[in-house]
Computed example of a mutant assay.
Amino acid sequence: MNILISNKMRNSEFMNNDIEINKALEKAEQAFEENKLIKALDLYNKVYKLSKGNDVDAIIGLALIYDYLGKSEKVKEYYKEALTIDEYEERAYYGLAAIYDDEGNYEKAIKLYNKAIYINPNYHKAYFFLANAYDVSGKKISAIETYEKLLRLNPMDFWANLNLGSIYEEENQNNLAYKKFSTALKIDPNNYLALFNMGVICYKFNMLKKAIRFYERAIGKNKDYEYSYLNLAVIYKYIDTKKGIKILSKGINNCINVDFLYYNRSCFYALINEENNACEDIIKALELYPQFLKYVLEDEELESIRELNSFKEFIKKEHRFV
Rank of each mutant, 00 (worst) to 15 (best):
M1Q: 10
S6E: 14
K8P: 00
N11K: 11
N11W: 06
S12L: 14
N16R: 11
N16P: 00
N17M: 13
K23R: 13
A24F: 03
Q30C: 11
A31S: 15
E33P: 03
L37E: 03
I38Q: 15
L41H: 03
K46N: 07
K52E: 13
A63C: 04
I65R: 01
Y66G: 06
L69Q: 12
G70W: 13
K71A: 09
S72I: 07
K80S: 10
I85T: 04
Y88T: 08
E90I: 07
E90G: 02
A92E: 09
Y93L: 05
A98V: 07
I99P: 05
K111F: 01
L112N: 04
Y113P: 07
K115N: 14
Y118W: 08
N120I: 03
H124W: 01
H124Y: 09
K125H: 11
Y127W: 04
A131R: 09
A133K: 01
S142N: 13
A143L: 06
K149I: 04
K149W: 08
L153I: 08
P155A: 15
A160M: 02
L164C: 04
E169M: 04
N175W: 07
N175S: 09
S182C: 02
T183V: 11
A184F: 05
M198Q: 12
G199D: 12
C202Y: 12
C202T: 07
C202H: 10
K204F: 08
Y215N: 02
E216S: 15
R217N: 14
G220Q: 00
K223Y: 04
D224P: 00
E226A: 15
Y227D: 05
S228H: 00
L230D: 00
L232K: 01
A233T: 11
V234F: 05
G244Y: 11
L248N: 00
C255A: 02
C255M: 01
I256R: 08
N257T: 00
V258G: 00
Y262M: 06
Y263T: 05
R265P: 12
I272M: 01
N273R: 14
N273Y: 10
E275S: 07
A278P: 03
L288K: 03
L288H: 01
Y295C: 12
E307L: 13
I315R: 05
E318D: 14
H319Y: 04
H319W: 01
R320H: 10
R320V: 14
